[in-house]
Nucleic acid binder design. Structure first.
Lengths: 324, 324
DNA sequence: TTGTAAGCGTTATCAG
DNA sequence: CTGATAACGCTTACAA
């Protein structure tokens, strides 16, 4: 009888459709959980983020990444389940997850929670982190991109620059210790030292990667008496917020304040002024990661330890200029 | 023994932790699917969209809605699974879905596919549609919002206006027949007739709700010889695209072309010029819908047929002005 | 083609 | 507190 649902071809079409018809008329639907149990796969893959989902969705970067992820997941017939820490514990959420594979986005370098999962034999690929050394990663050249971004600002003549980094998600210690944070910070720093300048630690502040977070960061810095001529933001979402904050402070961009972001999210072209930023292939990154994961899930022959790095490049638009 | 995992309180702490320890050392993890089967709930709820997920994520509106949805889902300990048509069939995707409840976003008025699901007894709440008359809905005043948007344009003196509506997702017939489409269209129309004007059907074009879609719509209209002085878009994503398209056509906004959107997505303030649009409480809508669904899932006492309508309002910013 | 029974990995129940 | 046993609702192999 279950042939009707699963191998309709092994049955005479007449019988099969008759069964299906009766089933439909009785309102019968095979219990998907019981099905999973015997079939030993769920046809869904989990997208893991260390932040809350609400925080993740607040950032357009995550949306665009999901776009790429969803694109290839859908064409392969996989559904997407989003997994975020529940009541602070990613492990707990992971334990309930019924997925055939895991895509981990921007995992902190020290994340004991996920080890258990990996050891359970579920294929995993990382995006924007190499926290798990024995799982493959899809990265972009964060350090290089960050370098070119700070270099651009410095070469414009700015000397008092505020660096706004991405604040770690709730259960993690503050400081740029996860995902793209360390690499980008290193890039910024190198740009300074390359020019014989000191990278001013006191001018580094944290913000949650959202418009609100960026706006708050600038207004607080301002309130604290800082008067930078430029701000280098670790994400476009933050940069947009800084832009909004600058506006409410009565600052003109870039005449009074230059702003540079990171990601080159689709809205970056449309802001007033258009945002100078570092482009990374967000959607393509999501697609590549998902494709790799699907290969792993299907036991296709791929290097299970590969670390693939995609290029970044500076995009100069209107939000940066010489200091006042 | 499973007490250790599920009711640790019914066991002496010593025993419980001993069990957990041994389990961990053996790399044991309770099989989540088997667990679901006996516990008869999955602790996850499904977000259903009639479009492909990639399309949905391309629209910031969906991201902001998801933000609200995720916020309350997370605090209640529920995970989110996104369900989109797989190989054209929403039914197929729905059949595999292991969820305790369903949140349907913008379902077309005629959507036989979902009937089966509802009859399977899974709680369902609709957002932006009343396709299923015996399920509750969370709506916004689409007609009123649309009315005020077209009225604003008309009262500015525009007479040649292009209306860009949301194109239905792949398997559906073209025409504004699903989700918010009909209501908003009716609002536009009423604004015209109220002013003794004819609502020009020939000046209605469709676009996928994304920046690309909007840009394409304008450039194609232009190529077809249309020279509107204003465009009324059914979504901010489309309006942003129209803005980009206008720019590439060398048109100044609003001097040469006025543009008005719908949604008041977070980026609307930051564009150049800031977008005039219709505000709707996107995040709050997601929160309300999820809260209602959770009530239903928990058999809490709520009106299972309620239709709640949240307000919309015109926000005049810089992208609209008098005709040239 | 149809029917029967074993197994999937848990949780829950009921004696010991 | 421990140990055995019956569900949970399906798929699949095997027998009829």
């Amino acid at each position: 009888m279950s042939f009707a649902f699963n191998n309709p071809d092994k049955l005479s079409p007449a019988t099969a459709s008759r069964i299906l018809e009766v089933a439909a008329s009785m309102g019968y639907r095979p219990h998907p959980v019981a099905r999973m149990l015997t079939q030993r796969h769920t046809m869904s893959i989990g997208v893991v983020t260390p932040q809350s989902l609400a925080t993740a969705f607040a950032n357009r970067f995550f949306g665009q990444l999901s776009e790429g992820i969803a694109l290839v997941a859908e064409e392969a017939g996989y559904a997407l389940a989003f997994i975020a820490p529940e009541r602070g514990s990613l492990s707990a959420a992971l334990d309930r997850a019924t997925v055939d594979g895991l895509l981990a986005i921007g995992l902190p370098a020290t994340y004991p929670e996920i080890d258990r999962l990996r050891s359970a034999g579920i294929p995993l690929v990382q995006v924007d982190s190499t926290a798990l050394p024995d799982s493959p990663s899809i990265m972009v050249d964060d350090e290089g991109g960050a370098y070119s971004s700070a270099a651009h600002i410095l070469d414009l003549g700015h000397r008092d620059v505020l660096t706004v980094v991405i604040a770690p998600a709730a259960p993690f210690p503050p400081g740029p210790n996860h995902g793209v944070g360390p690499d980008r910070l290193r890039g910024y720093q190198r740009a300074f030292v390359d020019r014989g300048l000191e990278f001013p630690r006191a001018r580094i502040i944290e913000a949650t990667p959202s418009i609100d977070g960026g706006a708050r960061a600038l207004t607080e810095a301002w309130a604290a008496g800082m008067r930078p001529t430029a701000v280098v933001a670790m994400s476009d979402a933050i940069a947009f917020g800084v832009m909004a904050g600058a506006r409410s402070l009565g600052l003109r961009v870039p005449a009074d304040l230059s702003i540079i972001g990171f990601d080159d999210v689709d809205m970056a072209v449309l802001t007033d002024p258009p945002l100078t930023t570092v482009n990374q292939p967000v959607r393509a990154k999501g697609e590549a990661a998902m494709r790799l994961l699907l290969d792993l899930v299907a036991h296709r022959d791929v290097d299970p330890l590969q670390v693939r790095t995609m290029p970044t490049r500076l995009i100069v638009r209107g939000s940066t200029g010489p200091p006042p």
